[in-house]
Amino acid sequence: MENTIEIRNLNFGFQPGKPILKNVNMNIPKGSIYGFLGANGAGKSTTMRLVMGLFNDPENSVKVFGETVSNIYPEGLHRIGSLIDYPAFYDHLSGYDNLKIVCTIRGLDESKIEEVLSLVGLSKAAKMKMRRYSLGMKQRLAIALALISNPELLVLDEPVNGLDPGGMVEIRELLIQLNQQHGVTIFISSHLLQEIDKMVTHLAVIADGEIKFQGSKEELKELYKFQKTKFFMNNAAEFTEFLNSDYEAELKSPTEISVVTQSTEDVAKINKILTEKGAGVYQISAGGGLEEWFMELTKQN
């Protein structure tokens, strides 16, 4: 499978001895929605800037569309739409005029402006000066600016920042639609784990400049599928001690014990121990979720 973005052994820093990215390896397959997760300052924005050619890549660690960043830009940018750091636009102009500038630069027909504005739900505010836009409106327009040229690749840094829950759903559905119907590769970073969870096909987790995980969602699920299992019963506190000798068990609430499990056999065994001790287990569920995985992964440093 072709990779739209390939990053190999990327080391990057502004000052020698203070690396920001350490030996980063990432593959963003064509047609995927690739989520990029990490805490603030972990290196997400830096990585995305390197992909966009906003920083110099002297060792050619980054390849986009199969070519090094220095070779493919600036023409290659025709195929890419982006939103880096925070929305970029000219606030003394209207939303319409901002889009017109992109059309001028990219040689697009002006009719696309109306199209993309309705796509992001800003048709009514088209002629208003952007300095009067709300945060959510600015965000939508920034997405419109990225989308208008029908790019093959979208590089989006926290695109749903500042949107209300309804807006987030809209944008999420739009992105998924673009991906499934038009095959647009989407490289997206976010803090909002639930949102990311609902939309990505692949993801990477970065902490302190190092990649902790990189791969498809299935692969991640596999890796942590049975890591934790939750057992729900009344008076859970009384029964925790019975598990402590053989298993790592944690009392999560008066009705919940979370246990580290390695396999299905473990789950059955634990259930047997609890019920034999008289616990009235009324629910067993897999504890692995994106948030857990995330906290786990980033905890290791």
């Binding site: 023409e75 880096i84 925070y86 970029a88 992109v102 630069i105």
Partner: peptide
């Protein structure tokens, strides 16, 4: 100033322009 404000340089540099 129009580009110093609001990330304008990034906007321009992510367009296909040298």
């Amino acid at each position: 100033q129009t580009d110093h404000k609001n990330n304008g340089w990034v906007f321009m540099e992510t367009q296909p322009l040298s």
